[in-house]
């Protein structure tokens, strides 16, 4: 079915790369949500994940490394009718763009952020990323990465993010379901997608993830923040996937009357008479 609405385009990704499944899951999720390509905007920074807007027939904004979130947020503010999805890597989202992640959570604009997290820099051929485990040896970290890995799930929950989830590219059905929920969530949603890099990460392989990931059970309550924090700290022998934390709260638009109500900002007609009246401030 996805073939007709979202045709397959040629990609430059390695065979076996987790990005292929992420792209397929995204197309399927958009079909579930009944979104037409022209109603969707996919935004990216730079990296292997950053090429995704090239491979889907939605609108696309491929910006600068680390800077996917600011234009995505602004595009949603300008046109609330666009479904805005950010696809970028762990280096882009957690390294170069780390500051934007923090403040995008605070801003809570209704966009969805898929982080293709392969715990390595793929495009630049294999340096450590902010999520690389301690001891991960690369050409640039010959003694192994010494820096504590960033825990994006824990960070997001603690900052008050309203939708925090993890998925695995090796389980496309589950990934799709989490994507659908993330896009439906009103507000900023962060989905960290574990994804093997078959060329440059010889540690965190399909096998490595398959041995560790497990789906959160039906009895797990993502509304419980303390439990969510506990789950988010689980990493190593066992890695939970699914919606870790969920909280309904007013998004950016809900706090501004003229954004919330009426037509999108882009369609609002400016009342020039009103602007002219501002000159009275300077009488």
């Amino acid at each position: 079915m996805s073939q007709s609405v979202f045709p397959n385009l040629e990609t430059a990704w390695c065979p076996g790369c987790g990005n292929h499944n992420i792209l397929s899951a995204l197309k399927e999720a958009l079909i579930v949500l009944d979104k037409k390509p022209y109603e969707v905007l996919v935004v990216s920074g730079i990296g292997q994940a950053g090429k995704l807007p090239q491979y889907i027939t939605t609108n696309g904004f491929c910006g600068l490394h680390g800077r996917a979130l600011p234009p995505a947020v602004a595009a949603k503010i300008a046109n609330k009718n666009l479904t805005v999805i950010v696809n970028s890597g762990d280096g882009d989202s957690y390294g170069e763009g780390g500051n934007h992640l923090i403040h995008t959570i605070r801003r809570n604009v209704d966009i969805t952020h898929f982080v293709h997290d392969n715990q390595i820099y793929g495009l630049t051929k294999g340096q450590a990323s902010p999520t690389s485990d301690i001891g991960h040896v690369t050409d640039v970290q010959p003694n192994g990465s010494n820096n504590m890995p960033l825990n994006p799930m824990l960070l997001a929950i603690v900052l008050g993010c309203g939708f925090v989830a993890r998925a695995f590219s090796g389980n496309q059905e589950h990934l799709k379901a989490v994507m659908v929920e993330g896009i439906r969530h009103k507000g900023y949603a962060l989905i960290d997608i574990l994804q093997p890099c078959v060329s440059f990460n010889k540690v965190n392989t399909y096998q490595w993830y398959n041995d560790r990931v497990y789906k959160l059970g039906d009895d797990y309550e993502p509304e419980n923040k303390l439990k969510a924090i506990e789950k988010a700290m689980e990493w190593g022998e066992k890695i939970p996937i699914g919606i870790l934390y969920r909280e309904e709260k007013p998004d950016f638009h809900a706090k501004i009357d003229f954004l919330m109500n009426g037509s999108p900002l882009v369609d609002k007609v400016i009342d020039m008479e009103k602007i002219k009246e501002f000159m009275k401030d300077f009488r």
């Binding site: 905007l41 800077r67 595009a75 500051n99």
Partner: peptide, 15 residues
């Protein structure tokens, strides 16, 4: 950096 990238995103979207 965010300020200018936001402005570009908003302009892309048509405002």
């Amino acid at each position: 950096i965010a300020a200018i990238n936001m402005a570009i995103g908003a302009s892309y979207a048509g405002v």
